[in-house]
């Protein structure tokens, strides 16, 4: 079994959206309608209940060492976004029904036959990945092709990726490979390259991502949060506060009765 995950090397992405199509086809997900967004070649928008891979397109008026364009200061950023299958998953820790589980492959999976559509995971995900489909009533997200992993197959998106931008495998091995790739890119002069969420040290708020990324610009540019945190880490303070509030309520109730009662006697 082991820890399975994705390493998405965005410097190799050519924006073909084969991952999006393969994901839709294999998982038999409905389309999202056919509208133009006006955001470069990105007409998908973002991840959603029926969209489990999303290719982001950024047209930058900045040159990038490994990209050669004619006269202009210009470079493309393309990145295939996906559920991160966090080590500390906000959705999983928030799910009140136990519908969201961690599988034997260390991935995070929503069981559609259990989910009752409470919507708490939607608000708890620090990456805005999981979403409730309104006409279905349940929460959906990338399963990391749980059905394919069980048959020892590569997830559909990684299988379809023509440039190995999406790489699937054991997370430990992917991490090493990614580290080597970063060094290689640094040697080539692309010093901006870094790994996003590769381990707990890089991203303590999530404990590291099973689906991590190689990026060359600020995470915000790819619509990724710069320092995400699983809400549960901060929830403790809210519980402590509620504890003091409970004490206050008890004092107020007793005080009101005692003071009010004395007046009656007097």
């Amino acid at each position: 079994m082991g820890q399975k995950g994705f390493f998405t090397d965005t410097t190799l992405c050519i924006g073909c959206k084969a991952c999006e199509v393969a994901c839709k086809q294999w998982n038999q997900l409905p389309d999202d309608g056919f509208q133009l967004t006006g955001m470069s070649y990105d007409n998908t928008g973002h991840l959603g209940s029926s969209t489990w891979r999303h290719v982001a397109f950024v047209e930058r008026p900045v040159p990038l060492p490994t990209q050669t364009v004619g006269l202009l200061d210009f470079s493309w950023l393309m990145a295939s976004d996906v559920c991160k299958h966090c080590q500390r998953a906000g959705c999983l820790e928030a799910c009140p029904t136990g519908a969201i589980i961690r599988t034997e492959f260390d991935t995070v999976y929503v069981q559609p036959d259990v989910c009752n559509g409470c919507g708490y995971c939607v608000a708890a995900c620090p990456f805005g990945v999981v979403d409730r489909r309104e006409d279905d009533g349940r929460a959906w997200k990338c399963t990391l092709c749980y059905d394919r992993l069980g048959e020892d197959m590569t997830p559909a998106c990684a299988k379809a990726c023509p440039t190995a931008s999406i790489q699937f495998g054991d997370v430990d091995e992917l991490r090493e490979r990614a580290q080597r790739r970063v060094e290689q890119l640094h040697e080539k002069g692309l010093e901006q390259a870094y790994l996003y969420g590769a381990d707990a040290e890089n991203q303590p708020g999530t404990g590291g991502l099973n689906a991590f990324f190689l990026l060359v610009d600020k995470p915000e540019v790819y619509n990724l949060p710069p320092d995400p945190v699983v809400p549960t880490m901060k929830g403790r303070e809210a519980w402590v506060s509620a504890g003091w509030g409970a004490l206050g309520m008890a004092v107020v109730a007793l005080g009101a009765v005692l003071l009010g009662r004395e007046v009656v006697r007097g």
Binding site: P30, D32, G33, S49, T51, R133, D135, D136, R138, W140
Partner: peptide, 13 residues
Amino acid sequence: EGAQQRVKDTDEA
């Protein structure tokens, strides 16, 4: 995996 997803209006997914 997503075959059970109930669909009424794909445009508003």
